[in-house]
Design a protein around this nucleic acid. Structure first.
Lengths: 236, 236
DNA sequence: CGCTATCTTGAGTAGCGTCAAGTCATGTGG
DNA sequence: CCACATGACTTGACGCTACTCAAGATAGCG
């Protein structure tokens, strides 16, 4: 059931929160703060949307961990991104009206679903929401630029170091420990994301562990030396 | 000088044309079609905007060829994209209000400049323009996804073949020959874009030439066998 | 005419991919 | 309970692709 007060707290990090509490009112007549989005739970492995299906809703992650993948002609998949609490999914489908990628839950997830027609109406009514949404879209373009640079220019060690630091930072920005977290991912998935084979990912993680920069236990990571990882990220 | 009639023809391919001819009117009261954007000419090597400067305007390319670059901490640059007639520049700056990249003219260019405050006002007045603009942003996210896949998964031959086919298609979509065009780029710039060294780019182009799939003369390319290039793009 | 930047081509090398063997954890069926 | 299968992970050996270093050709320009 919908619980306005609790949501207001839990949604603090959400990029789409303006869409939740702005269903009534305009810029001149302030909104009544009533959340009107659908919640949806996902089991591990369940797909939020698949490639080729029409765009009906945008999604904001409330809890859990998801991946978005591009499906290659030969059948296998390349991972485009990982998404946690507060991230927004589906923006790449607005241009064509059809999802060019698929999103899969990697563990138990909860997402908020905002129908696109509702989102459009909100943006037409309140310019501030439309502006905010444009910023959201632009942010993803800028982030994609960073990833293009990383994939084109960096060695395996740099990519893995960058990946670990990026995850740490994202967890930290959501109030969790920047030193210890679970990769909810197989080595193969990390490799797909970084443009490396799973053996190279495994070797590189082992190397970082041997240097005592991190401590790995399966998919659990503890960062022991942020500085060393940052150096590894910068140097040739 | 502004020449409405001629502009109307020349702007057919432009993604921002709605912004040019919609300065008056709303969705209910149709616009008077009067272009109100600034033109700006660029000499080869001149910068349209630089990293770190505030976003004041968006730009649509009318003529010429530009590159956008990310500047690395060590000083050198990675090329994020090439832009021709009809392309829009500056969208990655909307999120932060500051350009995260720089744009440089590779030959004589002419661009249309739309001040962001004017663009905002237009979008507030006409929902159809706002929707169109969101599609433009989303398109760039989807395209960035394609490039991420390409850089992470493809060999040098695949990347160069894809680059040539992509350029051919873009020229063709603007009404030029898909078989013959000028790369207004050094081998080094192509390498920066594709995540390869300039020697590898040179060798790969020489190889394609030896196979008689293309004919190169400096920066002029003629494609002799599209099918072979498409095969090279697909196969391992 | 030389200076410089660009480009081509060659030879050697390193990093990452490929192939393969073996460990470990989990699950399944007899 | 054990035998067996499966999937994730690690580690080693080897090979290929693309990078590095280097020499020379070509072209634009003062």
């Amino acid at each position: 059931m919908i619980q306005p007060a609790r949501s207001h707290v839990a949604c603090a990090a959400c990029a789409l929160r303006k869409f939740c509490f702005s269903s009534v009112g305009t810029d001149t007549a302030p909104a009544t703060h009533v959340p009107l989005v659908q919640r949806r739970r996902l089991r591990p492995g369940e797909k939020l949307f698949t490639k080729g299906t029409p765009l009906n809703s945008l999604y904001a992650v409330r809890a859990g961990f998801l991946k978005t993948c591009a499906l290659m002609p030969n059948g296998d998949q390349r991972i485009l991104g990982f998404h946690i609490m507060g991230d927004v999914l589906g923006l790449d489908a607005i241009a064509s009206g059809t999802h060019p990628t698929e999103a899969v839950a990697l563990n138990g997830c909860e997402v908020c679903e905002i129908p696109t027609d509702r989102a459009e109406r909100l943006m037409n009514g309140r310019a501030s929401i439309a502006t905010h949404f444009r910023q959201l879209l632009s942010e993803q373009i800028a982030e994609a630029g960073d990833r293009i640079v990383a994939l084109g220019a960096m060695s395996a060690r740099q990519r893995v170091a960058g990946f670990l630091l990026d995850l740490a930072e994202r967890w930290a920005s959501r109030g969790y420990s920047p030193n210890e977290f679970d990769l909810c991912l197989t080595r193969k998935e990390i490799g797909s994301y970084l443009g490396l084979t799973f053996e190279t990912v495994s070797r590189t993680l082992s190397f970082f562990d041997a240097q005592e920069w991190i401590a790995i236990d399966g998919r659990h990571v503890r960062i022991r030396n942020h500085e060393a990882l940052r150096n590894a990220l910068l140097e040739a």
